[in-house]
Amino acid sequence: MFKAKVNVTLRPSILDPKGKAAHHALQNLGLTNIEGVRIGKFIEIDVQASNEEEARGIVESACSKLLANEVMEDFEIQFES
């Protein structure tokens, strides 16, 4: 079994209201060195496959079909070694 770790993030050009709100709150906490916050999703996926390449194909398909909306989001897949 393969364990995939997926990060889904909003494209840089897309406004992120949640990140903006968190950034604002951090500023209020005095963490004024923080210059920007972007919030995405972290997803762990267990896949049954015979090799990593096959597993990656399955996870990529999961991401582009459902887990990420490619109109405004990017995804990045990593496998636990």
Binding site: I14, K18, N69, M72
Partner: peptide, 16 residues
Amino acid sequence: LEAGLIPGAMRHNEQL
């Protein structure tokens, strides 16, 4: 939108 019948996507309201 998610079904791709209309182009575009929805974000959270700007003021959350």
